[in-house]
């Protein structure tokens, strides 16, 4: 495990100068994941903020081979790339010969929550089931931010988005989030984890573990979005931390079927602490909002208790 000083001295594989917003969670996630790989990396990205923000022709932020083809198919695209690698390696026709097996090229697909939980779920499920050797990283900012903050199945209950606005009758999104991490665990993936960019050591460790495994692995990473959360750019990392201190975003991993919680806050903070810093929840702090906040808190508490029950256990 590199120290922060050592990390700072490493070559960046995702360069600055891109057009992602100030305070966006995506760039630190991508930088940390890319340098967790020990060997060469090939990456794909679903259509979304990361793609449009990092590659406006003729510019690119990617110092590793990178490809984007469409929105719903990052996992299918990486399947094809990884399959070509296998075939060309077998035939001795790879353009760059691997030095050794642990220097095999690693394949990483990035997608936002829209491209992962919603439109890309089928392709992701297929690729996980087929067992391709790749890591899928979801940066979850809780809505379709690239198209202007529309609700996705990752949008938290109570959140106002441009397609689930807080109106006089309907108070923002009325449904709970889909738990994609558990869906990925159900695919019997050898390694599934949740991480957050504020805890860079944990994120890097999890990415490195996922990439050393020969098989389909999945990382779900909290990604603050000042634009869509109506929060201050300088609060992003603090908001990421609060999401774990409130247990809204538990940090845990399921390694070869064994669930392990990576972070247990000494004192679990009330969800209101996290909600109140984000404009998307501001209607919940007006009269009538308490019930919704209570509902969110109850859901978080139930989920956290379940995780604590499973901690250290073989869950599949």
């Amino acid at each position: 495990m590199a120290t922060l000083k050592e990390l700072a001295g490493q070559e960046e594989l995702f360069s600055g100068g891109h057009r992602l917003c100030a305070g966006c969670g995506i760039p630190p996630i991508v930088r940390l994941v890319l340098r967790s790989a020990k060997g060469p990396v090939v990456a794909t990205t679903a259509t979304g903020c990361l793609e449009v923000g990092s590659t406006i022709y003729p510019y690119t932020s990617w110092k590793v081979p990178w490809m984007h083809s469409a929105f719903e198919n990052a996992a299918a695209t990486i399947s094809g790339i990884e399959s070509a690698y296998k075939a060309l390696k077998r035939k001795g026709r790879l353009p760059v010969k691997p030095v050794s097996d642990d220097k095999d090229t690693k394949f990483i697909a990035f997608g936002g929550d829209g491209g992962t939980y919603d439109i890309g779920l089928q392709a992701l499920s297929g690729a996980m089931e087929r067992g391709h050797n790749f890591l899928y990283v979801c940066y979850d900012n809780g809505a379709y931010m690239n198209t202007g903050i529309q609700r996705s199945s990752a949008t938290p209950l109570g959140s106002a988005t441009t397609t689930s606005p807080a109106g006089s009758v309907i108070p923002g999104k009325e449904e709970y989030r889909k738990d994609i991490t558990r869906i990925m665990v159900a695919h019997r993936s050898p390694y599934v984890a949740q991480a957050s960019p504020h805890n860079w050591k944990d994120l890097e460790k999890k990415a490195a573990r996922a990439l050393e495994i020969n098989g389909p692995t999945f990382l779900n990473v909290m990604s603050p979005c000042p634009l869509g959360w109506y929060s201050k750019p300088e609060d992003s990392i603090a908001l990421a931390k609060l999401s774990t201190d409130t247990c809204f975003w538990p940090l845990y991993e399921v390694d070869e079927g064994v669930l392990k919680i990576s972070y247990k806050p000494k004192e679990k903070k009330p969800i209101g602490d996290w909600l109140k810093l984000q404009g998307r929840f501001k209607h919940l702090f007006k009269p009538g909002g308490e019930e919704i906040i209570e509902k969110i808190q109850l859901d978080i508490d139930t989920n956290w208790e379940r995780l604590l029950d499973m901690d250290g256990k073989l869950i599949f």
Partner: peptide, 19 residues
């Protein structure tokens, strides 16, 4: 693959990869 959309997507990935 699990759909024709993914069949073409995987072909696109494989072809771009050099296969």
């Amino acid at each position: 693959v699990e759909s024709e959309h993914s069949a073409m997507s995987a072909c696109i990935g494989a072809s771009a990869a050099g296969g």
